[in-house]
Amino acid sequence: MESISNGLPILAWPMHSDQPWNAVLVCDYLKVGAIVKDWDHRKEILLAQEIEEAIKKVMVYDNGEEIKRRAKKLGEKVMQAAADGGSSNIELLPFIALVTRP
């Protein structure tokens, strides 16, 4: 969440729990990141070249500009939602009231 909130692209290297699903969401659906090592290959040794290639996907190659642009735009939307009057901010107080109700 922190990377997305700040409009930064993500290099995903899922290792356990919910991380494989998060990597799919970030890289395949939101298109604001690149996979470093796919979940199916999690038990394999990660080579320096694989890390380098993932960084290049975001920082060097043409599609990296699109990833960075989408990450920045999504970050702006997240910050707007969390700001005073934003959709997340508006829903926060009623949620707190609900879960703290005796």
Rank of each mutant, 00 (worst) to 15 (best):
S3W: 04
S3V: 09
S3R: 13
I4R: 01
S5K: 03
G7L: 09
L8Q: 07
I10C: 15
L11M: 08
W13S: 03
D18I: 12
D18V: 09
Q19W: 14
Q19E: 14
P20N: 04
W21S: 05
N22E: 03
N22W: 03
N22D: 07
V24Q: 07
L25S: 02
C27G: 12
Y29A: 06
Y29P: 00
V32L: 04
V32I: 15
G33D: 13
G33W: 09
G33A: 05
A34S: 00
I35N: 08
K43D: 07
I45W: 01
L47T: 05
Q49A: 04
I51S: 01
E52Q: 08
E52Y: 13
M59Y: 00
Y61C: 04
Y61H: 02
D62N: 05
N63L: 07
G64K: 01
G64Q: 08
G64D: 06
E65P: 02
E66Y: 10
E66G: 05
E66K: 15
I67M: 10
K68C: 15
R69C: 03
R70Y: 01
K73W: 01
L74T: 03
L74R: 10
K77E: 05
A82Q: 07
A83S: 13
D84R: 03
G86A: 15
G86I: 08
G86D: 10
S87E: 07
S88N: 11
S88A: 09
N89H: 15
I96A: 11
V99T: 09
V99H: 10
